[in-house]
Computed example of a mutant assay.
Amino acid sequence: MTAFSLEPAQLAWCAEVRALAAERLRPLAEKGEPGRVNRALLAELGTLGLLPRLFTSGALDLCLMRESLAHACTEAETALALQGLGAHPVHAHGTEAQRARWLPRVSDGSAVAAFALSEPDAGSDAAALTLAAEPDTDRPDTGAASASLAAHRDGPSAWRLTGEKCWISNAPEADFYTVFARTTPGAGARGVTAFLVPADRPGLTGTPLDMLSPHPIGALSFDAVPVTADDVLGEADRGFQVAMGTLNLFRPSVGAFAVGMAQAALDATLAHTTAREAFGGRLRDLQTVAHQTAEMALRTEAARLMVYAAATAYDEGAPDVPRRSAMAKLLATETAQYVVDRAVQLHGARALRRGHLLEHLYREVRAPRVYEGASEVQRGIIAKELYRTLDATTEEAGS
Score class of each variant (00 low, 15 high):
E119M: 09
T137K: 09
L266V: 07
G206C: 04
E395I: 11
L42T: 07
G280D: 08
A87L: 10
R366H: 12
T393F: 06
P322K: 08
V307A: 15
G186K: 12
A256D: 05
P172R: 05
Q378R: 14
G155K: 15
A122K: 09
I168G: 00
S157R: 13
P185T: 03
A224M: 05
R299D: 14
V90Q: 08
R342P: 00
S169W: 00
Y387D: 13
E134V: 15
L60A: 13
A132T: 13
E96Y: 05
T74Y: 06
K31N: 07
D391K: 10
R99K: 15
A309G: 15
A310C: 05
T184W: 08
K329H: 13
V259Q: 06
A76P: 11
G94A: 08
T228E: 08
P202C: 08
L358E: 08
A309W: 00
A397N: 07
N248L: 08
T183A: 14
A392Y: 01
S157Y: 07
A144R: 12
R153N: 00
R99V: 09
G281Y: 01
V259D: 12
T205V: 12
Y371C: 02
H356Y: 04
A278D: 11
M306D: 12
G398K: 11
V321F: 02
G109F: 00
G58P: 01
E23G: 00
F257A: 09
P172L: 10
S148H: 08
E67D: 05
A122V: 10
E385D: 13
L283W: 11
R36E: 12
S5I: 15
A343C: 07
H93S: 13
T178D: 10
P252H: 08
A128K: 14
A271S: 10
L346V: 07
M211Q: 07
A181P: 13
T274E: 09
R354C: 11
